[in-house]
Design a protein around this nucleic acid. Sequence first.
DNA 1: TATGGTTGCGGAAGCGCTTCCCCTTATTTA
DNA 2: TAAATAAGGGGAAGCGCTTCCGCAACCATA
Lengths: 339, 339
Amino acid sequence: MDTARQPTLTEVARLAGVSVTTASKAINRQERISEATRKRVLRAARRLSYTPNLAAKSLASGRSNIIGVLLRDPMVDRLAMPMVIGAQSVLEQLEFSAIIADARGVDDRLTELGVMLRQRGVDGLLIVGDNQGAISSITASAKIPCVYVHGPTSNSRDVVHLVDDFAGAVTLVNHLLDIGRTRIAHVTGPKHSPAVQQRALGVTHALHEHGLRLAGRVRYGLWSQRWARQATREVLAKVPNVDAIACGSDQIAAAALEAVTATGRKVPDDVAITGYDNWTVFAQETDPSLTTLDMDLEHLGAAAVSDLFAMIGGNRVGGGTRHHEGTLVIRGSTDPRLP
Amino acid sequence: MDTARQPTLTEVARLAGVSVTTASKAINRQERISEATRKRVLRAARRLSYTPNLAAKSLASGRSNIIGVLLRDPMVDRLAMPMVIGAQSVLEQLEFSAIIADARGVDDRLTELGVMLRQRGVDGLLIVGDNQGAISSITASAKIPCVYVHGPTSNSRDVVHLVDDFAGAVTLVNHLLDIGRTRIAHVTGPKHSPAVQQRALGVTHALHEHGLRLAGRVRYGLWSQRWARQATREVLAKVPNVDAIACGSDQIAAAALEAVTATGRKVPDDVAITGYDNWTVFAQETDPSLTTLDMDLEHLGAAAVSDLFAMIGGNRVGGGTRHHEGTLVIRGSTDPRLP
DNA sequence: TATGGTTGCGGAAGCGCTTCCCCTTATTTA
DNA sequence: TAAATAAGGGGAAGCGCTTCCGCAACCATA
């Protein structure tokens, strides 16, 4: 707690018997320094347990090695955390840090925070959406490299990384078809959610590809077990011979599984069930546990940050959207041999 | 993306027709500046949409207005996010930012990150534990003010903010007693978890206070619905006339409620159920929804950061642990009039 | 031996800001 | 009216670092 003053580069230089300039070069770059002096400087630095003053460094060099991470609404979107963690893992390797700020769902705050972070001298911005709809693009106002994740933006030239919900749904349905199911229903979240829409499109598309149709209509509703139980009961009533339910999320799938089991049907033998998200507290806790799609959010965050670095480094990064396919995770709700 | 150079204080000063010194004073402090000049400077600043270069400011003043937030293991602990958000709300008011880093559960990383953040010039450190046990104290190695949250530390002189699990459990049990329950069982998480231990102690303590004993032994287990269903069945078999189950978490309570209902018993009429956490996806989704204890994590994070600021400001803050009581949230699982 | 290129190093400027301290002018007090 | 005080403003130093550029010593080439 006693803020013992840190040793400065000047002191290191003095101890090593060189100029500050030389010390700086020795520590940072390889440029025109003999191995001998570099060793000497580094040894001195170690002896003083020198650590550079990053604020000064940033001021002098014009680069801070800090990026800003803007969360649109971390309370709403539990998915933000995994992406941030994925981003951090890349940051760490490159000796970058992240200042994190959240906008609590307010778009204007996002812009403000972007400006605030630029004042802080961040080298770039990673904007994490909440998958509830478009993010208003702050690229223009921020005036530093921006990469968006988990939400489309209002500017088509932005660099955006998204999960490919359409492809994910196709993958799941194909898996259901592979195990011989043909009467497939779809119970999912609120219709206004882009993710929900894409998944629904994926489901119907995959079925059409195989000359099939959805069993009943798409059941849009809420991200809620309570609602899902109800919806599933309706599906079972309307289409008693349904042999699979593709659910819009693990939360819904967990409730669906409960509702299906409650009617005496066996999962997966009578009715196979798939979720979406690989959200452990649901996917691993049902009995049997859920076949689902893992969105590889950490990977998504990492990929986005990599793009951001390229931009910070001055490389031209093509604008536009990159879609990331997730990974199918097969468990007992579709494969009787698994738990 | 075109990094348009930011206007500097010098330019503002020139436009306002004053010296840089005066401009600085006008913008930052009230010290010995006439209202007229201050207005003039501020107007100039606004016209140029001046924003201070915080790196330079920090270098010159020795304070960065940034704190470091160290997460011990954000993947394990979903509770970290609310605390961080609570902290952010205070930070924002004080015009501070937070650099966030996570240690992925490794104590040594925590120390390293502490050092790294000091290099970055952070003014203080908020260390967020994962409630899985003690955090190794980094106060000594960090050499800047440190406040810990959600986990005790190895150094009793550290400033630590904790949820009072004991008091929370007492509150819940008292509520059960209030509604006339006397045969109360306790199904909870892993015994090695400090939170679990404290809650169990609270439960038995509250019962003793009223001359009662727990119905059966404490059922320690896992944070898992699957396990909780099983445990609840056992409880019902061993103590068929049990009239309340205090659960160690909402996750467990959700499964307990399911298991109780499956036996034909009514909740809350036959068996009242309480959870812990007020974790929406469980507490609000059972039928009826769960009476539970909200730990006010945002408030906890905010309180911790307030202490940190006091320390940064040079105020003496007494070391030791502060316990935060949560808030009882009554819902249908104990009160038949509620959903 | 003269010429040019290379290598290793340091002096000095400057990044944008705060702060110490001194100077001027206006205001009060004796 | 002179002297003491307060108030407003600016000059200059300095925070710790990077980087531009100049200088000396060394090497290779013809």
